[in-house]
Design a protein around this nucleic acid. Structure first.
Length: 688
DNA sequence: GCGATCAGCT
DNA sequence: CACAGCTGATCGC
């Protein structure tokens, strides 16, 4: 649950996802998605009054969020004051103080967050730097790298602060099976049941919240059966969702709800009241989507667990796992990070300890490159060395290797058209409803489990998978058709053979339908456990089994807090050394990336680092035109000098009469190209 | 009567 | 295995 207070340090005159207290004075409001814990105060009388007297105050959100919000009569009073902004369309907003007339310009870009229909992250750009508010998100590894608008040219933007969804930011949530895996498991479970007879039905025991829609649409698509729900009017303008739902209780797939649903189910009654069809009693199983997570060392696991005679739990998560969060944040590599959520059983400090090392300020800025064949990741040095093996394989490549994965059709336009508010483009609305199709993946990629282990070994890895790693859980909306296109982590490591069988063999199938009403038991423990259950019908046994299943991570999570701080000295060194350098570079990077801002917007930057106005800028500002590769990579080189010399020591280049000795900076560039597997074309650099 | 908050329960 | 939200009790306006 979000505990974000609504205001960001850099832009305190706007409020995001909170609408009470201090936020009542905001010049503009932003809503990332339509979940109640992000809407506190949104329909309170105080805010209603504020709207009535401040006629220039608006709420900005995605078109889908607007639609969902206005479906509820309680929020109807917002109708004239909501401005929807298209996804991935940088939009300038004027923040006017109605009392003083003071005005501030800000550019906001909505990025798909993969959390629920309409959910977005907000990227704000203005005089106080670029900040990213993630809202709630679930993004697979590598997805940040595929977001065009997080980049300037080929490098990630210089982001001052990230306000981050840290719901699962704890090592015990190290890994959560991907959306595709989870969906696949559910599809097969449902298939094994509803194909038995028309009277075999499944009940999806979903909570009352947006976010399960892609499950419904995929089930409907797969089986040609519309999913029964209580209400669907909120989707009236989203045909991609609407067409897969029905209020006709005759469906074989139900996601309807009722306060006494569990009790009903116990008596073989669906929440909608159905008990039979054509006088033949229904045979019902329940599937409860729940988050299942796995620790670093967990070998494999099923995404479906049987919890009772006719009850199953299916893995499902709206939020990124620990390793997905770390992948995301380390790719963004901001100066600061602020957790929006304190996960249960941990503290703000602990979360910060985990996240800080992924930010610029505490990193060793000098990446270490070696010629191909010895390429090894530069380890990020943890302040606390809390979980030393966390990042054995999930950490991103060193900072300068962070290159955007090109999108298929769009090369990188240097400048995007900037919409100026207010503007509406309702046509594209249905594309961003948060569904995605899952059926185009090759079966072998639908592993029912992720094996952390192969890459978790102690051996050195040769990491040349570069920026396209990770599974390609498609982002809702614009990435529907790109799935499978990007190389996948699993492809490099998994065994092709056994996966499919292993995850499907125990699914209920019509051939195995014995006298039991219930599918064959197929939940099992992880490979190590001997508790693999057979077809017992004892509820308690099942439940205890699930206790041993997969959540073993719990045991090794017990507060890893204070391990020996062997690297403490190094850490403090790095901290001291890199900080001033970063400060110096902020203005440059801002200028470089704020291509959407009129020049005078950034020329009068009210930088908090006033002392840095003397930064030499002549050569720097040309980066935009002189090459897409440099802006971020330059940063470390400017100030870390040669104290950490090994970056070039193992790559001595003898000087020849006509060859100019490559600048360290250029060498760096060449290394990176090598690391990416690109050929090196020696080109004449402009002499500066 | 409404809102805010909390406990309890999925 | 904890997503997000409902219900009901209590207190205050």
């Amino acid at each position: 649950m979000s505990s974000f207070e609504g205001q960001m340090a850099e832009y305190p005159t706007i409020s995001v996802d909170r609408f009470d207290r201090e936020n009542l004075r905001a010049r503009a409001y932003f809503l990332s998605h339509c979940h109640k814990d992000h809407m506190k105060g949104l329909r309170a009388p105080a805010l209603k009054r504020r709207l009535e007297c401040s006629l220039k105050v608006y709420l900005y959100c995605s078109p889908v969020t607007k639609e969902l919000l206005l479906t509820s009569p309680k929020y109807r009073f917002w109708e004239k004051r909501i401005v929807s902004i298209e996804i991935e369309t940088p939009t300038q907003i004027s923040l006017v103080d109605e009392a003083s007339g003071e005005k501030e310009e800000i550019v906001v870009t909505l990025l798909p967050a993969g959390h629920c229909p309409g959910s977005v992250m907000f990227l704000f750009q203005g005089n106080n730097g670029t900040v990213l508010y993630t809202g709630d998100f679930r993004l697979a590894k590598g997805e940040a790298a595929r977001m065009e608008l997080l980049h300037s040219g080929a490098s990630v933007k210089d982001i001052q602060s990230v306000y981050l969804d840290t719901t699962f930011c704890h090592p015990k949530y190290y890994q959560i099976p991907s959306r595709e895996e989870c969906l696949r498991g559910i599809l097969e479970l449902v298939r094994g049941w509803i194909t038995r007879s028309p009277n075999h039905v499944v009940w999806l025991n979903c909570k009352a919240a947006y976010g399960y829609e892609y499950l419904f649409t995929n089930l409907s698509e797969e089986f040609g059966v519309q999913v029964h729900v209580n209400k669907l009017d909120m989707f009236r303008n989203m045909p991609d969702i609407l067409h897969h739902l029905t209020t006709d209780r005759g469906s074989q797939i139900h996601a309807c709800r009722h306060p006494k649903a569990e009790e009903y189910f116990h008596w073989n009654k669906l929440p909608c009241g159905m008990i039979s069809k054509n006088r033949i009693p229904l045979h019902t199983i329940s599937i409860k989507p729940s988050t299942m997570w796995f620790g670093e060392r967990t070998r494999k696991t099923n995404v479906i667990v049987r919890t009772g005679e006719s009850s199953y739990r299916a893995c499902f998560s709206f939020h990124s796992s620990y390793s997905e969060i770390k992948d995301f944040l380390s790719y963004i590599n901001p100066v600061n990070v602020y957790p929006n959520v304190i996960p249960m059983g941990t503290t703000l400090e602990k979360v910060k300890e985990i996240l800080k090392p992924l930010c610029r300020s505490s990193q060793n800025m000098e990446p270490k490159y070696k010629p191909l064949g010895k390429l090894k990741r530069a380890r990020i040095i943890h302040l606390d060395s809390e979980e030393d093996d966390d990042d054995l394989f999930d950490d991103p490549l060193p900072v300068p290797l962070r290159h955007k994965v090109p999108n298929q059709q769009t090369p990188h336009p240097e400048v995007l058209p900037m919409t100026v508010i207010p503007q509406n483009q309702p046509e594209k609305r249905t594309e961003s409803t948060g569904c995605f199709k899952a059926d185009s993946m090759p079966t072998c990629l639908w592993a029912n489990f992720i094996d952390c282990e192969e890459s978790n070994s102690e051996s050195e890895e040769l990491e040349i998978t570069a920026p396209a790693q990770g599974d390609t859980s498609p982002v809702p909306h614009h990435e529907q058709k790109t799935e499978g296109e990007v190389p996948q982590w699993e492809v490099f490591f998994k065994r092709n053979d056994e996966i499919t069988d292993d995850c499907l063999e125990n699914l209920p199938s019509s051939t195995e339908a014995g006298g039991s009403q219930s599918p064959k038991l197929f939940s099992d423990s992880d490979g190590e456990s001997t508790h693999i259950s057979s077809q017992t019908s004892s509820q308690s046994t099942h439940i205890s089994e699930q206790g041993s299943q997969g959540w073993d991570s719990q045991m090794d999570t017990v507060l890893l807090s204070s391990q020996e701080r062997k690297s403490g000295d190094i850490t403090s060194l790095n901290k001291g050394g890199s900080k001033p350098g970063i400060k110096e570079n902020i203005p440059i990077l801002q200028m470089e990336q704020n291509v959407f801002c009129p020049r005078d917007t950034y020329s009068d930057l009210k930088s908090r680092d006033q002392d840095v106005s003397t930064v030499p800028s002549a050569g720097e500002t040309t980066t935009l035109s002189s090459g897409k590769h440099m802006p971020q990579e330059k940063r470390p080189l400017n100030h870390s000098s040669n104290t950490d010399s090994q970056s070039s020591s193992d790559f001595e280049i003898p000087s020849t009469p006509e060859a100019e000795l490559p600048q360290q900076e250029h060498l760096q560039y060449l290394y990176k190209k090598l690391a990416r597997g690109e050929g090196i074309v020696i080109e004449k650099r402009k002499s500066s």
